[in-house]
Nucleic acid binder design. Sequence first.
DNA 1: CACCTGATGTCAGTGTCTGTCATCACGTAA
DNA 2: TTACGTGATGACAGACACTGACATCAGGTG
Lengths: 188, 188
Amino acid sequence: MGRWEPDARGRLAAAALALYAERGYEQTTVAEIARSAGLTERTFFRHYADKREVLFAGAGELEDLFVRAVAGAPAPAAPLAALTVGLDAVAEMFADRREFARRRHAVITANAELQERELIKLASLAAALAGALRGRGVAEPAASLAAEAAVAVFKIAFERWIAPAEEASMQQLIRESLTELKAVASGA
Amino acid sequence: MGRWEPDARGRLAAAALALYAERGYEQTTVAEIARSAGLTERTFFRHYADKREVLFAGAGELEDLFVRAVAGAPAPAAPLAALTVGLDAVAEMFADRREFARRRHAVITANAELQERELIKLASLAAALAGALRGRGVAEPAASLAAEAAVAVFKIAFERWIAPAEEASMQQLIRESLTELKAVASGA
DNA sequence: CACCTGATGTCAGTGTCTGTCATCACGTAA
DNA sequence: TTACGTGATGACAGACACTGACATCAGGTG
């Protein structure tokens, strides 16, 4: 065996989620997370920029997947059609992580600081999507507006998907939200 | 004259904006802001919950104005039409604060923590607007989607409004963004 | 065997934010 | 006038997030 236990990053993330869920984000110190993972506080900050970031390690992958799918959508597709290709790819990625998503989201919605971090990740996603659309020849401000709308669709579908009683697939919920958006935007 | 200089809150906000603009948000300590306003660090935290909030005192008023305008829109109006009434009210409120908005926005865009706070204020605004729409009989998820779309329109119009060369009125830019949104949403 | 590398530990320090108590001008009532 | 309450502030101690600097040590490499 190696000099250290493997996957320090993953152990820190798991310990953090467990402690945040058990006693709340504010009531958990970084030293406790590190100790729970068999490491020191200083090592925590070598793996994650701050106490919140430990919950958002997957945000980069989500953004990459979404952006690549949009960039690779069939050429003649309109902005919202290209974004729909990305939304479908994202839905597939989430499919088998519903319980994890529920636990993580419960922790985030219980704390304002964590919500702030989630929002800036979504804003980063929207900016990246707008960039992908511009790469497809979409002009501003249409690119940014379409990207913001797509993120809103994702956010609302996601919240429905993790609702306690919900059983519909994320892809189904995304399609429904998209339909609603089109109806709302054309209805005034 | 009173025992203390008047308007401690306002003096703190002015000192903070000036210092954040001059040397950057992270390079400014709360103790410096307080001293610049003739107060102590402890008093700063009695007026503002944290170092960021001092830049967002007006967010509550913006939300109140926006929500009241939407709630008071003519009864038969569709969701996006009611939101447009609110957007017009907001545009009027901003009209004579363009330079202040530019300075404040420059500080915020220069720092990720401040952007996070701005995003959660916009999310709070979107939630309040969705509530106002539900109060008008709009069902979910249409209410939330329409509210998110309206906030996106506001955000994009605002950014154009404070762009260096821009001279168009905020109302004009909001109308243009709304038109773009409708075109994008119906174009796929 | 000597050396380098990379992940970790240790320690000291800064800054944000909170709890607690003291201070003191002002208003009010006896 | 005097005693008392009130509210904004100051003073102080402390918890905790986060950073910089240096030490440690197993494993790979020459």
